[in-house]
Amino acid sequence: LNGGSWNGQFCLCPSGFTGDRCQHVSVICQNGGSWDGLKCQCTSVFYGPRCEYVVESIEIEQTVSASVEVTVRVTSEDFSEDLLNNSSQKFKDFSKKFTEQMAIIYAGIPEYAGVVIKELRRGSVVVDYDVILKAPYTQEYQEEFQNISMDVKEKIKAATEKQISGANNTCSTLLCFDSSATQVQNVSVKNYNPEETCKKVAGDVYSQYFTVEHKNDKLYCITPCMSGFKASLECNYGKCQLERSGPRCLCLTTDTHWYSGEACDWGIQKSLVYGLVGAGVAVLLVILVILLVFSIRYRREAQSQRSRVSDLYKWNEEEGRSTPGSFQNIGFDLREEREDYVHMDSMYSNFQPSLNNIDPERKIQIQRPQVVMTAL
């Protein structure tokens, strides 16, 4: 069914259909979504039954990181070749003990996120390591990390000086250090651009419509459809939807109003529209009725006039009189000097008006023209 083909063992179904006979319509997930058998699993940028809608906001990294290079000399441990192999048990045991000791030393720094051992060298055990720092993003995060690195330096200096005690220069902590060999070097702050991160996560198609705003000490990667921000698109009586062409407002239709306009800010009452349409129809019907009445009256008058004229012609014919207003031919004499020549005198003398029905007693008043004299 549905365009499938039999390969000898089972049906090969085209895209969009499943089943042993290709009888079921499968849900096609859009925008990179995948079907798990029950629903579409959408990527972080889309949602909906078929992943057809773009999300209004995306979660992005809220923290920034930095590292401080530190070198210390551990005097309570002897160096061995096994420490050069980070897969050896000796290295793992030392790394665990060193990490625990550093956690105690830097416990007072909230941004402390651990240490990374870069190299172990001879000289008792010289340790080159990085102190990892993480902090919530702020616009001044680089300056804050510079201040935090000063705290790191003070902490490690104080710890290595106070550990040595007693006549035998022993210490009561996990590891002992030579305070003279402690060095705090470079601070490396990882550059973080939240705007670039936001657009990268959004993807190429919709990245131009995503922007970052800082609100309540938190970063938000949003579209204009996310309400409550400076970049928000106000749709009033509608819903914002982001499409490939950009954000637009889809206006609502309620039981009492229709809404329209780019921001769905213009509404009209349905009852008003229905009233105006009804009034317009009523006026149109009245006009049609008036035209119909005039048309009927005109037809009746025209028919009556034709009837009177017809009767008048009929009466004149019965009495042998000429038709009123016509001419009577009392003779037509052609003087054929030439075949195509007719004298006008003959025509005028042979055509005479029929005055049988004219009342000779009726007076006709003609206004005398007035003469106006002007002085030159």
Results as ranks from 00 to 15, higher is better:
residue 3 G to Q: 01
residue 10 F to R: 09
residue 10 F to C: 07
residue 15 S to A: 10
residue 16 G to M: 03
residue 17 F to S: 05
residue 18 T to R: 09
residue 22 C to E: 07
residue 23 Q to Y: 02
residue 33 G to M: 01
residue 34 S to V: 14
residue 36 D to W: 02
residue 36 D to N: 06
residue 39 K to H: 09
residue 41 Q to E: 12
residue 42 C to M: 02
residue 42 C to P: 06
residue 47 Y to M: 11
residue 50 R to W: 05
residue 55 V to I: 08
residue 64 V to T: 08
residue 64 V to P: 03
residue 66 A to L: 00
residue 71 T to C: 10
residue 73 R to L: 11
residue 74 V to C: 04
residue 75 T to F: 03
residue 75 T to Q: 06
residue 76 S to K: 06
residue 76 S to F: 02
residue 80 S to L: 05
residue 81 E to I: 13
residue 95 S to K: 08
residue 101 Q to R: 10
residue 102 M to V: 04
residue 102 M to A: 09
residue 107 A to G: 09
residue 108 G to M: 00
residue 109 I to G: 00
residue 110 P to T: 04
residue 116 V to H: 11
residue 117 I to A: 01
residue 119 E to L: 14
residue 119 E to T: 13
residue 121 R to A: 15
residue 122 R to E: 11
residue 124 S to A: 15
residue 125 V to H: 01
residue 126 V to Y: 01
residue 132 I to W: 03
residue 132 I to H: 08
residue 133 L to M: 00
residue 137 Y to R: 00
residue 137 Y to S: 02
residue 139 Q to E: 14
residue 141 Y to E: 00
residue 147 N to C: 13
residue 149 S to K: 14
residue 152 V to S: 05
residue 154 E to V: 15
residue 158 A to L: 11
residue 162 K to Y: 13
residue 164 I to G: 09
residue 167 A to F: 14
residue 168 N to V: 12
residue 170 T to C: 15
residue 171 C to H: 07
residue 173 T to Q: 12
residue 176 C to V: 10
residue 177 F to H: 03
residue 179 S to F: 09
residue 180 S to R: 15
residue 182 T to S: 07
residue 191 N to R: 10
residue 192 Y to V: 00
residue 193 N to W: 00
residue 194 P to H: 01
residue 196 E to R: 01
residue 199 K to F: 07
residue 207 S to E: 07
residue 215 K to V: 11
residue 222 I to M: 03
residue 231 A to P: 02
residue 232 S to N: 00
residue 240 C to G: 03
residue 253 T to A: 10
residue 259 Y to Q: 02
residue 261 G to C: 01
residue 266 W to Y: 14
residue 267 G to W: 01
residue 271 S to Y: 06
residue 272 L to V: 11
residue 274 Y to E: 12
residue 275 G to I: 05
residue 276 L to V: 08
residue 276 L to D: 06
residue 280 G to L: 01
residue 282 A to W: 02
residue 282 A to L: 05
residue 283 V to Y: 01
residue 286 V to D: 03
residue 295 S to L: 12
residue 295 S to D: 06
residue 295 S to K: 11
residue 296 I to L: 13
residue 300 R to Q: 12
residue 301 E to K: 11
residue 303 Q to A: 15
residue 307 S to W: 11
residue 310 S to M: 11
residue 317 E to S: 14
residue 320 G to D: 04
residue 322 S to E: 12
residue 328 Q to W: 10
residue 328 Q to H: 10
residue 330 I to W: 02
residue 334 L to F: 07
residue 335 R to A: 15
residue 338 R to G: 06
residue 341 Y to N: 07
residue 351 F to T: 13
residue 360 P to L: 04
residue 364 I to V: 14
residue 366 I to R: 00
residue 368 R to Y: 07
residue 369 P to N: 00
